[in-house]
Design a protein around this nucleic acid. Structure first.
Lengths: 169, 169
DNA sequence: AGTTGACAGTTCTATTTTAGAACTATATTC
DNA sequence: GAATATAGTTCTAAAATAGAACTGTCAACT
């Protein structure tokens, strides 16, 4: 599998990973949600090489996650702003933050706290079912082939894997 | 910034990215949640090189996301199973899937549908506030320095970025 | 007894990506 | 006219990845 072909995969994870599935893209996004917008600030905060930063910003713009907006003339300079498509990545970033807060903090505790302006409280993000509102755990989810499924659907794969496990283990 | 040092960063995103922030790790995780467990099956499904697969599985075991469990003797062979720490990554994977379903599908529609066994319905994952239960959007969240914050906290950074924007743009 | 096949890797070379540093371009301030 | 700010591009060395072949263990078949 080549990376160029990832975005054409019949899997939403693979397609998303084609956009944000590298280390620097995720860190750039984190900074975007912290209102960082300019090349120099990304660069100095992240310590990423300028070459890679330019490349990743181009990629995120190409995929419509960021847009390049002029903020001054003479010379014209641009800053990078999250589009709606980019803002919709907030749950991904928050899920990552929360996992890090839960499993990767040291004795000093979590580096950031999040306040929900609507209710005024410090909160954790919780992923719930859109239908019943209950928190989602992996065991309680069953996958089905959707309209865009390829031949080897996840359903079939899970069935095959289960069969192979009971056969040998 | 070296990748070895990423896990020591004072940021939960950076620490999480040190574990799962590369393309193959995320795809391996996706497969884990689809009950794939064995080297050969990961390899044939993903098309990843065996070298990289071995490396990533080792890394995920080292970080406690997967554990290596024997499933046969003579010769002893192992499969890779999600630990609780790994299962806790489900919201990350689901958030990625949902973003892909929303923004990266083609005309055929989404490849997978998810059924919530608890309520029996097809659902989308929604990220809500642990305190008030309302869906979370980026604008409604304010960050504060936590006990593990470093010097340049996100709060300060956001303030600085805002100041710089109003100055020049 | 010898060959084949399954499984879970390891090793090798060629290619691609990234790190790190220097350089370019435009315009403003000292 | 020199220094500074911003947003890149270009260069070489180092690291990671792709792609293929190879290793070791054991079971099953011939």
């Amino acid at each position: 599998m080549r990376w160029d072909s990832l975005e054409q995969e019949r899997c939403s994870v693979a397609r998303t990973v084609a956009v944000i599935g590298d280390r620097w893209s995720l860190l750039i996004l984190r900074d975007c949600f912290l209102r960082v917008r300019r090349f120099e600030e990304f660069q100095s905060r992240l310590g990423v090489t300028r070459h890679v930063l330019a490349d990743r910003l181009k990629k995120l713009v190409r995929f419509g996650v960021l847009r390049r907006a002029p903020y001054q003339q003479n010379p014209t300079r641009y800053e990078y702003i999250l589009t709606q498509k980019g803002l919709d990545l907030y749950p991904v970033v928050m899920a990552i933050v929360h996992w890090g807060d839960t499993h990767m903090v040291d004795e000093r505790g979590r580096p950031l706290l999040h306040e929900h302006k609507s209710c005024g409280k410090m909160f954790d993000p919780v992923m719930v079912c859109s239908e019943c509102g209950e928190p989602i755990v992996a065991r309680q989810v069953h996958v089905h082939a959707g309209p865009g499924a390829a031949e080897g659907t996840a359903e079939e794969i899970a069935a095959r894997a289960a069969a192979s496990s009971s056969r040998t283990g």
